[in-house]
Write a protein that binds this DNA or RNA. Structure first.
Length: 425
RNA sequence: GGAGAGGUGGCAGAGUGGUCGAAUGCGCCGCACUCGAAAUGCGGUUUACGGGCAACCGUAACGUGGGUUCGAAUCCCACCCUCUCCGCCA
């Protein structure tokens, strides 16, 4: 949510930032709606002030048992009463129109975000690790995975496309990855483990920015709740409508949860394999911090995600997303892309975003700065640390052997109960 | 799912139609006392929006949304949430 006052103060800057996102100027429209609302609001407030004054006089007359005077006053106020309901209605309408306008506008990009229309304008910041040279042609996990317990057919039979069942060693490897990630984020990087709700209300999704614009990407239950598309929703909303104590900041949360996405907009993309599923697991990182700390917190979160890839020995590159490729709520986003030998390219495995105060405004999440009167909005950040399903794919493909087996990265051995490789059945 | 109780400021907790934005206590801030601290005393201490250079003024908010009324924390309705008991259940 945008601060209407900052738009009033500097509409040109607002429009310029929208333009960087590839959007039309909106300040004129917004300020028009704002002016309408303020006009009606002032009119209503004046009417209410008059009514309140008269009502007080009636109260005073009643207190002195002067009922004749009270009745006379009542008749006077009754006339005033007619205009109030209409004004109230109008105030609500114009206010809602302004809010709806503001709620549908994405966050403004940070100054150091490169401008561009789509992912082609993203900037590669760095690379880590060397793609391994195979002495055979590396296979697609969708091809050699089924023999190792990656069962697409049985899952499709019960649930349809974009579902998979993991069996035996494959299920264990998936669990090992998730446990390793969670242990690392809690043990080394200072995140508090959370087991959050997976079903949430409208207002919760509004807070993080999935609603009102992106309902078609989500699954909704028959009684109205929504399945979370990412634990970012649950973790960030832990501070909704709260005033957090300054001394407790930053709050760093992590959770291993399933994520549910309809993938409505990606028909035909990544239909093969385990890359794009309706249901997948992810270890999410969320940080709630002071505005002045969010840039540093962003780097810490990025390092926390990168640490997992490094520990697993998976080559990756770090991309700074351009204005046109960022999500709705983000002011600045880095993607981590892992090397997939079968596709001979890097694929997104983590996305780490600083949302500034955008989500905090929508959730009304504040803190009381030490030694200051009043409250300020928090900054929120989120990132994957990492997407477990895609990490499984990366491990399978990068550690595959010519005979169709897969070596288990050493760091996972004790999570695997001594299993050191997956072998085709 | 059934029955009942309840949701008030940072916290606890009064308040059942008329200067109630709200007593009191705790907490917090300032001052006094003190070498200093504690204790004590005095004063201050909600938020949002609008207007104003400012002092300040106005409006709204007692779970949320409606209603009754000249006037609602207080009465009525719906919903949400919490607690207790019963039922069911991993």
């Amino acid at each position: 949510m945008h601060d209407i006052r900052s738009i009033r103060d500097n509409p040109q800057a607002f429009d310029a930032a929208l333009k960087r996102r590839g959007l039309e100027s909106m300040s004129a429209q917004i300020l028009g709606a704002d002016e309408t609302w303020r006009g009606v609001s002032t009119e209503l407030q004046n009417a209410l002030a008059k009514r309140n004054e008269a009502s007080k006089a009636i109260g005073a007359a009643m207190g002195q048992k002067d009922f004749a005077k009270a009745d006379a006053l009542k008749a006077e106020v009754a006339a005033l009463k007619d205009s109030i309901p209409a004004l109230e209605e109008k105030e609500k309408e114009t206010g809602a129109a302004l809010d709806a306008m503001l709620a549908a506008i994405p966050n403004l990009p940070a100054a150091d975000v490169p401008e561009g229309a789509d992912e082609h304008a993203n900037i590669e910041v760095s690379r880590w690790g060397e793609p391994k040279a195979f002495d055979f042609t590396p296979q697609d996990h969708a091809d050699f995975g089924p023999a190792l317990g990656l069962d697409f057919e049985a899952a499709a039979a019960m649930s349809g496309a974009r579902f998979a069942a993991l069996r035996g060693g494959m299920a264990r490897l998936h669990r090992a990855l998730a446990q390793f990630m969670l242990d690392t984020q809690t043990g080394q990087n200072g995140y508090e483990e959370v087991n959050p709700p997976l079903l949430v209300r409208d207002a919760t999704l509004y807070g993080t920015g999935q609603l009102p614009k992106f309902a078609e990407d989500l699954f909704q239950t028959t009684e109205g709740r929504w399945l979370i598309p990412t634990a970012e929703v649950s973790l960030t909303n832990l501070v909704r409508e709260q005033i957090v104590a300054d001394a407790t900041l930053p709050l760093r949360f992590t959770a291993l949860t399933p994520c549910f996405r309809s993938e409505a907009g990606s028909a035909g993309r990544d239909t093969r394999g385990f890359i794009r599923q309706h249901q997948f697991e992810k270890v999410e990182l969320v940080s709630i911090c002071r505005p002045e700390d969010s840039a540093a917190e962003h780097e810490h979160m990025l390092a926390s995600a990168e640490g997992i890839l490094q520990a697993l020995g998976l080559p990756y590159r770090k991309m700074l997303l351009c204005t046109g490729d960022m999500g709705f709520s983000a002011a600045k986003t880095y993607d981590l892309e892992v090397w997939l030998p079968s596709q001979n390219c890097y694929r997104e495995i983590s996305s780490v975003s600083n949302c500034g105060d955008f989500q905090a405004r929508r959730m009304n999440a504040r803190y009381r700065p030490e030694g200051e009167k009043g409250t300020r909005f928090l900054h929120t950040l989120n990132g994957s640390g990492l997407a477990v399903g895609r990490t499984l794919v990366a491990v399978l493909e990068n550690y595959q052997q010519a005979d169709g087996s897969v070596r288990i990265p050493e760091i996972l051995h004790h999570y695997m109960g001594g299993i050191k490789q997956l072998t085709p059945r």
